[in-house]
Protein backbone atom coordinates (compact mmCIF):
# COMPACT_ATOMS: atom_id res chain seq x y z
CA UNK A 1 0.00 0.00 0.00
CA UNK A 2 2.69 2.50 0.98
CA UNK A 3 4.75 1.61 -2.09
CA UNK A 4 1.78 2.56 -4.26
CA UNK A 5 0.86 5.73 -2.36
CA UNK A 6 0.83 7.75 -5.58
CA UNK A 7 -1.86 5.55 -7.11
CA UNK A 8 -3.97 5.84 -3.96
CA UNK A 9 -3.80 9.65 -4.16
CA UNK A 10 -4.56 9.41 -7.87
CA UNK A 11 -7.71 7.38 -7.26
CA UNK A 12 -8.85 9.73 -4.48
CA UNK A 13 -8.29 12.81 -6.69
CA UNK A 14 -10.16 11.23 -9.59
CA UNK A 15 -13.09 10.25 -7.41
CA UNK A 16 -13.14 13.74 -5.89
CA UNK A 17 -13.37 15.21 -9.38
CA UNK A 18 -16.05 12.74 -10.41
CA UNK A 19 -18.05 13.48 -7.26
CA UNK A 20 -17.79 17.21 -7.93
CA UNK A 21 -18.97 16.72 -11.51
CA UNK A 22 -22.00 14.71 -10.37
CA UNK A 23 -22.99 16.30 -7.09
CA UNK A 24 -22.08 19.98 -7.29
CA UNK A 25 -24.90 22.21 -8.49
CA UNK A 26 -22.72 25.09 -9.67
CA UNK A 27 -21.37 24.85 -13.21
CA UNK A 28 -18.01 26.50 -12.41
CA UNK A 29 -17.52 24.03 -9.54
CA UNK A 30 -18.23 21.24 -12.00
CA UNK A 31 -15.50 22.60 -14.29
CA UNK A 32 -13.04 22.72 -11.37
CA UNK A 33 -13.97 19.11 -10.65
CA UNK A 34 -13.25 18.25 -14.28
CA UNK A 35 -9.80 19.87 -14.01
CA UNK A 36 -9.08 17.95 -10.80
CA UNK A 37 -10.06 14.71 -12.55
CA UNK A 38 -7.66 15.60 -15.35
CA UNK A 39 -4.75 16.24 -12.98
CA UNK A 40 -5.48 12.88 -11.37
CA UNK A 41 -4.98 11.17 -14.71
CA UNK A 42 -1.81 13.18 -15.37
CA UNK A 43 -0.48 12.16 -11.94
CA UNK A 44 -1.14 8.52 -12.87
CA UNK A 45 0.91 8.74 -16.06
CA UNK A 46 3.80 10.79 -14.68
CA UNK A 47 4.22 8.72 -11.53
CA UNK A 48 4.16 5.54 -13.62
CA UNK A 49 7.03 6.90 -15.73
CA UNK A 50 9.10 8.08 -12.74
CA UNK A 51 12.14 6.02 -11.81
CA UNK A 52 13.74 6.29 -8.37
CA UNK A 53 17.20 7.81 -8.52
CA UNK A 54 16.84 8.94 -12.11
CA UNK A 55 17.71 12.16 -13.88
CA UNK A 56 15.49 14.45 -15.90
CA UNK A 57 15.23 13.23 -19.52
CA UNK A 58 17.76 15.71 -20.91
CA UNK A 59 21.15 14.29 -21.80
CA UNK A 60 24.03 16.00 -20.05
CA UNK A 61 26.76 17.47 -22.22
CA UNK A 62 29.34 14.96 -20.99
CA UNK A 63 27.04 11.94 -21.28
CA UNK A 64 25.98 12.37 -24.87
CA UNK A 65 28.58 10.15 -26.48
CA UNK A 66 28.72 7.51 -23.77
CA UNK A 67 26.50 4.43 -23.97
CA UNK A 68 23.19 5.38 -22.37
CA UNK A 69 21.61 3.43 -19.53
CA UNK A 70 17.85 3.77 -19.84
CA UNK A 71 17.31 3.43 -16.08
CA UNK A 72 19.18 6.69 -15.45
CA UNK A 73 16.64 8.90 -17.21
CA UNK A 74 12.97 9.39 -16.43
CA UNK A 75 10.55 8.02 -19.00
CA UNK A 76 10.04 10.66 -21.73
CA UNK A 77 7.09 8.92 -23.37
CA UNK A 78 4.53 9.39 -20.58
CA UNK A 79 5.68 12.99 -20.22
CA UNK A 80 4.94 13.78 -23.88
CA UNK A 81 1.45 12.38 -23.68
CA UNK A 82 0.67 14.47 -20.63
CA UNK A 83 2.37 17.64 -21.91
CA UNK A 84 0.05 17.81 -24.88
CA UNK A 85 -2.88 16.76 -22.69
CA UNK A 86 -2.39 19.77 -20.40
CA UNK A 87 -2.46 22.28 -23.28
CA UNK A 88 -5.47 20.63 -24.88
CA UNK A 89 -7.04 20.48 -21.41
CA UNK A 90 -6.88 24.26 -21.03
CA UNK A 91 -8.37 24.72 -24.51
CA UNK A 92 -11.30 22.46 -23.65
CA UNK A 93 -11.60 24.22 -20.29
CA UNK A 94 -11.96 27.47 -22.20
CA UNK A 95 -14.70 25.89 -24.30
CA UNK A 96 -16.48 24.76 -21.12
CA UNK A 97 -16.19 28.25 -19.63
CA UNK A 98 -17.63 29.67 -22.85
CA UNK A 99 -20.65 27.39 -22.58
CA UNK A 100 -21.06 28.39 -18.91
CA UNK A 101 -20.94 32.04 -19.98
CA UNK A 102 -23.62 31.47 -22.62
CA UNK A 103 -25.82 29.73 -20.03
CA UNK A 104 -25.33 32.67 -17.66
CA UNK A 105 -26.32 35.11 -20.39
CA UNK A 106 -29.59 33.27 -20.93
CA UNK A 107 -30.58 32.35 -17.37
CA UNK A 108 -28.58 34.77 -15.14
CA UNK A 109 -27.42 31.96 -12.87
CA UNK A 110 -24.81 29.24 -12.63
CA UNK A 111 -27.02 27.02 -10.49
CA UNK A 112 -28.23 23.84 -12.16
CA UNK A 113 -31.55 23.59 -10.30
CA UNK A 114 -32.55 27.15 -11.20
CA UNK A 115 -31.64 26.58 -14.84
CA UNK A 116 -33.80 23.45 -14.96
CA UNK A 117 -36.63 25.35 -13.25
CA UNK A 118 -36.42 28.16 -15.82
CA UNK A 119 -36.40 25.66 -18.71
CA UNK A 120 -39.49 24.00 -17.23
CA UNK A 121 -41.20 27.37 -16.88
CA UNK A 122 -40.44 28.21 -20.49
CA UNK A 123 -42.04 24.99 -21.72
CA UNK A 124 -45.19 25.40 -19.65
Amino acid sequence: MILKFNYVIMIILMMLGLWAMIAKKNIIKKLIGMAIFQTGIILFYISMGAKSGSNIPILDYYDRYKPIDAAQYANPLTQILMLTAIVVGVATLGLGLTLARKIYDDYKTFNEDEILQEIKNEHD
Partner: peptide
Protein backbone atom coordinates in the same frame (compact mmCIF):
# COMPACT_ATOMS: atom_id res chain seq x y z
CA UNK B 1 0.20 -1.76 -11.09
CA UNK B 2 4.01 -1.45 -10.87
CA UNK B 3 5.37 0.02 -7.66
CA UNK B 4 6.30 3.69 -7.57
CA UNK B 5 9.69 4.44 -9.12
CA UNK B 6 10.42 0.96 -10.46
CA UNK B 7 12.87 1.26 -13.41
CA UNK B 8 12.05 -2.26 -14.61
CA UNK B 9 8.30 -1.70 -14.87
CA UNK B 10 6.69 -2.65 -18.15
CA UNK B 11 5.96 0.97 -19.06
CA UNK B 12 9.65 1.86 -18.76
CA UNK B 13 11.17 -0.96 -20.75
CA UNK B 14 9.75 -1.32 -24.23
CA UNK B 15 9.44 1.67 -26.53
CA UNK B 16 10.56 4.30 -24.05
Amino acid sequence: LPSWGDPQALVNTNVS
